[in-house]
Design a binder for these strands. Sequence first.
DNA 1: GATGAATGAGCTTTCATTCAT
DNA 2: GATGAATGAAAGCTCATTCAT
Lengths: 190, 190, 190, 190
Amino acid sequence: MSDTQGRPLRADAARNRARLLDVATEVFTTRGVGVPTEEIARAAGVGVGTLFRHFPTKEALLEAVMVRRLEAIAARTAQLAAEAEPAEAFFGCFRLVVDQSEGKNEFARALAAAGVDAHASLRESSTEIQARLAELLARAQQFGAVRADLGLPELIALLVGTSATMEHLGPDPVARERIFEVVFDGLRPR
Amino acid sequence: MSDTQGRPLRADAARNRARLLDVATEVFTTRGVGVPTEEIARAAGVGVGTLFRHFPTKEALLEAVMVRRLEAIAARTAQLAAEAEPAEAFFGCFRLVVDQSEGKNEFARALAAAGVDAHASLRESSTEIQARLAELLARAQQFGAVRADLGLPELIALLVGTSATMEHLGPDPVARERIFEVVFDGLRPR
Amino acid sequence: MSDTQGRPLRADAARNRARLLDVATEVFTTRGVGVPTEEIARAAGVGVGTLFRHFPTKEALLEAVMVRRLEAIAARTAQLAAEAEPAEAFFGCFRLVVDQSEGKNEFARALAAAGVDAHASLRESSTEIQARLAELLARAQQFGAVRADLGLPELIALLVGTSATMEHLGPDPVARERIFEVVFDGLRPR
Amino acid sequence: MSDTQGRPLRADAARNRARLLDVATEVFTTRGVGVPTEEIARAAGVGVGTLFRHFPTKEALLEAVMVRRLEAIAARTAQLAAEAEPAEAFFGCFRLVVDQSEGKNEFARALAAAGVDAHASLRESSTEIQARLAELLARAQQFGAVRADLGLPELIALLVGTSATMEHLGPDPVARERIFEVVFDGLRPR
DNA sequence: GATGAATGAGCTTTCATTCAT
DNA sequence: GATGAATGAAAGCTCATTCAT
């Protein structure tokens, strides 16, 4: 579901690809997208050539990192939606997305800056997430757990914004919990 | 209070400095911090040399842009605090900061990336804003308009996050208003 | 006549530009177009940045070298055409073009390989030369010094080919003269 | 005579080698020597590894392509020399070499650029051709069909140059014939 | 003070060649 | 023998910063 390539990669190639993605995720998240490709390759224990064989462009690497994150979120979202009742599912997902999304904003911006059409493969995964979110939102609204006038775009923007809030706030769990309280209270019907 | 230089600038130099700040604000906001210095200089109608005479570093230019924004915000915040009663003052300021802050996040990140201690001149203006915000918050809490357990760090993080939300949401005024409703509802005591 | 830029270059810039062209001509001619740009810059005593300021692309540098050569040839062609009677002018020009053109073929090929439309600025100068050659050919044919059935395209191809012949032959003046004899005999009417 | 390897190749290996040579000839001729090895391998339906097993160097592949061409020319030259009378044999061979040689110039240059002594295996085949040409030339001169003062180096240079002429001229058969007329007229004694 | 040409470290990307599978 | 993933030196080009004019 996540593999665009036709044939399966050779064992070592797959290992390298995975390592590159892991390293890139880590590096981009902690040090920003400005980090030289060469350094990512070195950190993954491969040559630059290998990196560029797997991801023909730095932008492609960025995109792949994003896609993988989005897919992981989508998977956990689906799981949660299946297991819990509407309100719990909705707010649980909100938490989940926010917790998983930290640092993502920079990627999104970098990609956006690189040209609007860059999203090609991103669209797909983000579309899936959006569909799931839309469903969760609708059910929570029918259930009376979320104010009825909230649209999907606002929800998504709030997810992005709350991630930014958390990123700015740092790791203090009490403070983070308070933010969730504020936002969730605001989301409930009057 | 906003001039670090000792002697006053010559008339044309001051004009150049102002134009550079205006152009840089515009360019950084709309096209990101990756835009070459040369281009900013050209757009301001001066040579690169002039730019670097006024701002010895690209980072310094970024900082100056930020400072000016923060000062503007501080000024309008002060005005609002003086004129309105606690609740109105608090929520008015929240709106104001968010509306003024769009696009700022990237600056903040760029500055942070360039070294944590870079803030030198920033600290000052942001300290001022923070002091005003702290005061507005305290008064609104005493007045019973804002939940009592909210600290200044959470407030600031929420300001940053709500800016991000708005940035992601685009210009639709109805949607933006709904976001404010959500956040403000969440901020009020239960 | 040879300057496309609007304003005149600063003295030092003009000097650098000229040096770069000289060095590039020399290097490309003797060692081929594969020589790194950086090396050309070093040989000209400037940094790479300077080279790329003057010629935004390696291809642009190639083109500029070609244009300068073609312009020199055109100028000397014009002079010869004005001073001599038809036969002498025609054959004199043939010699001149061949002598000046050595090594040029590789440039032409490299440019062609880089995209057919690259010729932009080349077209102009080569058009001028072609016009002069057409005139010389016509006059020599009317004068009965050159076989009447020869067209301009054939003449140009012969110029290119004879340059290649000479390039392959090396510097031996007797042998070179014999080649000219062969070609010139062949060009005269039966 | 064309195999330098000692032991005979396995059937599939021989097939691969032949395909590689065919494809390389085609690709180098039409698109130049800058084409990546990987692409040639793919076009031949083999992996790069196989290409490099057969030709340890890109240059070696180039050389092999050249050798095969030269051998083909040598064979047809021998045949022509045996069947026709001196004049016809000489001029027929000239045509033949020129027609077969198109595109070769770039190869020759690439080889030359890669080191003067690179010719190892080339020398052999080109020596054979040269011997045959020398003989044809001598006989044609004795027969009075070619000017007596022309040496072998000039002849070879003329072959190279006429190939270049033709390459520049394109496929128009009338124009090509006119070029042959010019050169052949020039080669005949006064 | 203003200018913009010069600088060169650094970035992304390509490709001949090697070697584990 | 064949494969193609891995390699890394090198190439073309950018851009913050300096400095002669």
